[in-house]
Design a protein around this nucleic acid. Structure first.
Length: 602
RNA sequence: CGGGAUGUAGCUCAGUUUGGCUAGAGCGCUACGUUCGGGACGUAGAGGCCGCAGGUUCAAAUCCUGUCAUCCCGACCA
């Protein structure tokens, strides 16, 4: 046997070892009780089902069952990346800090970037642990690519990332060390960038569909390129950290930062029953909440006046008291590059009052207002004078407005921007992100190419990430019942669980062994619960770890010549004759695989 | 980084308010026996730096000070 066939043989054997196992010989530490530290379902279930154990806040060990699931997710990601033509590489997690200095991200990441010095002889090397790999990959490509003829291409890797989370939480959902698939596309023109982006977007849809995750691609803040340049892939889940605005009717979905509303601009006219303007003394009453309490009114009656600095010029932004201003929308409305809340000095300058008492009446700077503002009759606003508000403020009479804008965060009940339907708010887990980067990194790291006219240009990039751990966590967060996890067939640590109910019964044991051996010979991922335990105990564990298909072999069934086959999500088992047991399992698996495949976009 | 909570057996927790015998229970674990189709029962056992350090006291799981860790809410999150 030559070396290569020996290696193949050993790979074969290691693959075979992956496929099947006896429970008594593996490590599946299930827990009956809910660990006190775990709050959200995925965290509780992953601990209870013996998938993970915590090392410290934000760092978890994947145990055999959990690691199998993780590797299955990883493999689906890898297959779809390969199919999309991306090239797999593996970059170091350990990176020189210099790269982050050059892109300005040492500053931008701040405390999130884990970095430290190591001694090498009499030198000190300042390193970072990669929170993502834009710097490393751009540096690599800068050194490898010189001409347009080498482009375009997309590189990807599946690798551990490190971020010093200020507050790790929700078990595996937010950790300081996590497995991420990150891909980077390199192109000479926007067309090729768009092609790479679309191809990644499509691959992502296939990946999440194959993983059995309910997912929603949402429009996200687009950054430097503008337009349709960024999507987050969200898994709707009650415990998700992100708020998504979603319209069921039109399918519109966007994150809160980005979501438009379909409101129509109101007619700007003074209310027919406008009451006389009146100044009231409101000592130390600056916040909306305090004003409402003091004047016994509702926040909807107030006009919130925020002083922003738009490219260093002050502008007053008016939104209804119960709404939140959206900086991105303000930036676009005034056509500024940079928008931030003005400093107390600037506020004093334009309003003549300290923070908390700004209002549109008599203010010394331009005003822009949200659609919902001019329709408030007899509104309450700051008086541009310390410790005073004005009541019965009305547009037209007391302050002027030519037009109104969409300036606030969307709220549930807003009309969809697609013309029909209503927006609702859902929470979601961010499981993927695709982003058109442009030339931010290629410019700062000198990644250029020469075109056919020998002109030098920065390479146009895109980046595409998937949180592999979050795939597992999202499944556990959304697919479970009172008894445990309900895995999709594609990600389940094992596809089939064989349960001989009484391992002391020679006939039961012999049939279970036969089924187990035949299933593994047929290439099925099969786990056999060969433990000498009572049936109820084994059923409970089976439901907890959630293996999709359960094959029960017991004395009672055997007397009738039957075994029982049951999907985890069914309540009643199907009886199959002993002779057809294995074939029935294989048939059911094939049918289910086909069923899951139907949901994958082509 | 602000606010809140909790650290006692592998897990879930009692005991702390009001200091006082050898620190407890259930589950799990070990051995033997009886059981055996949805987390059985009996008997006998093993298992504790009561988070850590200092202090008060004749005496500290219990009171005081400090510290560490974990969880939750908020801020932050390329």
């Amino acid at each position: 046997m030559d070396l290569s066939s020996a290696r193949l043989n050993s790979i074969d054997r290691s693959c075979e070892r992956m496929l099947h196992v006896r429970w008594s010989q593996t490590l599946i530490p299930t827990m009956k009780e809910v660990p006190a530290d775990a709050e959200v379902p995925s965290h509780q279930l992953m601990l209870r089902a013996g998938l993970i154990r915590q090392l410290m806040a934000g760092a978890y060990t994947y145990l055999p069952l959990g690691y199998r699931a993780l590797r299955k997710a990883e493999e689906i990601v890898r297959q779809e990346m390969d199919a999309a033509g991306a090239l797999e590489i593996h970059m170091p997690a350990l990176q020189p800090i210099d790269l982050f200095n050059r892109t300005g991200r040492k500053e931008a990441f701040g405390n999130v970037l884990i970095n430290f010095e190591v001694k090498r002889g009499d030198k000190k090397i300042h390193c970072a642990l990669g929170p993502t790999h834009e710097e490393v990959v751009t540096d690599l490509v800068a050194k490898l690519v010189s001409t347009y003829r080498q482009l375009p291409f997309t590189l990807y890797q599946i690798q551990t990332k490190f971020r010093n989370e200020e507050r790790p939480r929700f078990g595996v959902l937010r950790t300081s060390e996590f497995l991420m698939k990150d891909a980077y596309s390199f192109a000479t023109n926007v067309d090729d960038l768009n092609k790479a982006y679309d191809s990644m977007y499509h691959a992502y849809c296939r990946i999440f569909a194959r993983c059995g995750i309910e997912y929603l691609p949402v429009e996200a803040e687009s950054g430097p390129i503008g337009g349709d340049a960024s999507h987050e892939f969200m898994c709707p889940a009650g415990n998700g950290e992100d708020s998504i605005v979603h319209c069921r009717k039109t399918g519109y979905a966007a994150n809160l930062e980005r979501a438009e509303t379909g409101r129509t601009p109101p007619k700007i006219a003074t209310s027919a029953d406008a009451k006389p303007l009146e100044k009231v003394h409101t000592p130390n009453v600056g916040s909306i909440e305090a004003v409402c309490k003091f004047l016994k009114c509702q926040p909807q009656q107030l006009v919130k006046t925020l002083i922003y600095s738009a490219d260093e010029k002050p502008v007053a932004v008016l939104v209804r008291g119960d709404h939140e201003a959206n900086e991105g929308k303000i930036r676009r409305a005034v056509g500024a590059k940079k928008v931030e809340l003005a400093s107390p000095e600037v506020i004093l300058q334009v309003t003549g009052a300290p923070v908390g008492f700004a209002g549109p009446v008599g203010i010394k700077c331009p005003i822009i207002a949200d659609h919902d503002v001019p329709v408030i009759a007899n509104a309450i606003t700051g008086a541009n004078e310390g410790d005073h508000h004005v009541i019965n403020v009305n547009v037209g009479r007391d302050y002027a407005l030519d037009k109104t804008f969409d300036l606030r965060n969307a709220v549930a009940g807003d009309p969809s921007p697609r013309g029909e339907g209503t927006l609702e708010m859902v929470h979601g887990i961010e499981i993927g992100h695709v982003f058109k980067l442009g030339t931010k990194y290629s410019v700062s790291l000198d990644a250029n190419y020469i075109d056919e006219k020998e002109q030098k240009h920065p390479i146009i990039m895109g980046c595409y990430g998937i949180g592999v751990n979050r795939i597992i966590a999202s499944i556990c967060e959304t697919r479970y019942d009172a008894n445990g996890i309900i895995w999709p067939l594609s990600i389940a640590p094992y596809e089939v669980l064989v349960i001989p109910l009484n391992v002391e019964d020679a006939e039961v044991k012999a049939l279970a062994d036969k089924c187990y051996n035949e299933l593994k010979a047929a290439g099925v991922d099969v786990l056999m619960d060969d433990r000498d335990q009572r049936p109820g105990f084994k059923f409970k564990d089976a439901d907890l770890i959630g293996i999709p298909l359960r094959l029960v072999i017991g004395g009672k069934g055997l007397k009738e010549g039957n075994v029982e086959i049951k999907w985890r999500w069914q309540t009643e088992a199907e009886k199959a004759p002993v002779a057809q047991a294995v074939q029935t399992v294989l048939d059911r698996l094939a049918a289910q695989r086909a069923e899951e495949a139907k949901k994958v976009p082509t």
